[in-house]
Design a protein around this nucleic acid. Structure first.
Lengths: 196, 196, 196, 196
DNA sequence: CATGAATGAGCATTCATTCAT
DNA sequence: GATGAATGAATGCTCATTCAT
């Protein structure tokens, strides 16, 4: 049997391929129903090759989650700093949503993995905190005075998750429009903004 | 331990105990990380006893999910028929939410199982349809004319899921209050109602 | 739940029923593919009832085999003593075959069990010995001088087994006719006899 | 023992060894009393190694049976085509028997497995059909006019089975001689032939 | 860089058998 | 005489992971 390095192959390529296939399979079948053997089969390499690039099944999965969360964080942070001079947190927020939805639509598999894993610290702690700091200064100007901001934000995160998994990824709703609608739901009475 | 029947043993009791422990463990660790051996250990019986009462691991799990969905359906249907003479769908809806949240708070483990399994037909098809038929007749009277009802409902379901898993089950928010807040978020401008 | 003695039941009856169902199931599915649970289900009793009458699964099976072998032995021995004054071992043999085939046809399930278990002492030792003592005195008068009697007898037993399992039990060939044909095959040149 | 590849290991060899041990154990103890754990113990490998080469316990067993039947078929077909110009079906038949017995003696374990599994299509349908087409053209010239060819052939197959399992495999009778004796039994009056 | 070959540890499920009622 | 309830002991099979090449 032929052994050793494949013609035309490079470590980089194998690793990237494995990662891609893993993302696809994890997103389609979930962590436990995805076997390393499935991943390597899809990538046309063998099992030991997987371990050349990833420490374990769990390690890759956690890595993917982390990548997802890091990307979200970046999108949010960049938008915030870009729009910080604006006093209109509603508009800022709509841009954030628009960009998040766009990112999800561009990376549907990774998004599905990340959104289905919603009991992790990022979703339960980090994200709410970020949203809070964006919204709280002029929450009063928004209409929901009677609603605790904490609950508002949890609700919002739930909405984002479900709308992404259903409308955005399954029905291909337009990201910007979805952002606009969500803002309308949560911060009605004011005019929709144009997103970037 | 000797073989055969235990002193003072009762099938009814064993089955109930197994079911309860299974619910707890499935909700805490998920389907794949819950082993039959965990369940029977918690119930202080042996593995064959499990199979005396349940066909398989999957069968029980599906059964639990079905029970959850059936209960939700009942709560919704009963409330609807109880309040159908009212023309105020907003109030009906708030009562539904209140009762659902109460049910979740009373059955936290089953609720967690059911809410974490949100890619099933009930959540993606049945529930939206029910919500739609409740809300659509006087949706115009509600304030979100610009939002497609489909998206509104998906968003709402996401909110319910996340608020239940975080505020209701982890932070013990009051069910009625949570229902009221959610109604305020989604159907503001009108007065909150007193729930039953 | 009702417990204790069934109305109208008697130990004799349960035992007989269990035995009958066991015979049917063992013959249809073989020893290993027949479960005690199958037997008791067919007999409409519960598993402990089985153990009221039989020591174990194996015990009943061995018992059935023994019954079969005892019956064969009896048929052979009785026929021999009945026909011993005759010097015509060929005719005696045909009668034996005829009676054996008749017995098999009357007890097809037990016969199937017994004939499929052909590596037991009775088939490999006892039966050949009996056949030998019947045939050897005037084997010379039969036509197969060149064939060792040992091989002739093994061949004959194989023929009996297969013809019973195929022609007799599956195709309902007439037992007497089958005996006659078998005698014709093995001891040709002489006239067929009328069997009893 | 450490995990991973053994020094000097070869898949081919492991598979062959497993197959051989499986044949031995299946033939000695039968299908149901042979455990995968027995097979791998005999082959000095672990259970997962078994599943590296065979799909399941049943798959290997069926494969062995198929191999046996294919071999028989080949032996018969080749002999027939080799001897087809001869008009003497008796001689052809004796050669077939001789070669079959030789094959059985050379592969005693596989033969035992195959001959003990005699309720399969090959034995009940294919083999009789082959024998029939060999013998029927000049069956009239053989001496058993009164015997239906169907019964003659069933009888013959039974003889082959039993003689193989007893005389050939247990007592090491000579294959050629056994073939000759069997032909003498079934087609006497004519001269024995020399087999190839 | 990559593969062939192997294994440790586990897991759902089954079945004959037995105790308490 | 019979049943409800339970268990000891497997058994086939899987999967992430690892050594030798």
């Amino acid at each position: 049997m032929a052994r050793g390095r494949k013609v035309n192959s490079s470590g980089e390529r194998s690793m990237k391929l494995l990662r891609e296939k893993a993302i696809e399979l994890f997103s389609e079948n979930g962590y436990f129903q995805t076997k390393i053997s499935d991943i390597v089969k899809a990538a046309h390499v063998t099992q030991p090759t997987y371990y050349l690039y990833f420490e374990s099944k769990e390690a890759l999965y956690k890595d993917l989650l982390k990548e997802f969360h890091t990307n979200l964080e970046q999108i949010i942070d960049e938008t915030v700093s870009e729009y910080q001079q604006l006093q209109d947190s509603k508009q800022t927020f709509q841009v954030i949503l628009s960009r998040l939805f766009t990112y999800f639509a561009t990376n549907p598999h990774l998004a599905k993995i990340g959104l289905n894993e919603s009991n992790v610290e990022f979703v339960t702690e980090v994200l709410p905190q970020k949203f809070k700091s964006i919204l709280e200064n002029d929450l009063k100007s928004l209409q929901k005075q009677d609603v605790s901001i904490h609950i508002l934000i949890q609700s919002l995160i739930g909405s984002i998750e479900r709308l992404t998994l259903s409308s955005l990824l399954l029905e291909n709703t337009n990201p910007e429009q979805l952002a606009e609608e969500l803002v309308t739901i949560y911060f009605a009475k004011e005019d929709a903004v144009v997103t970037a």
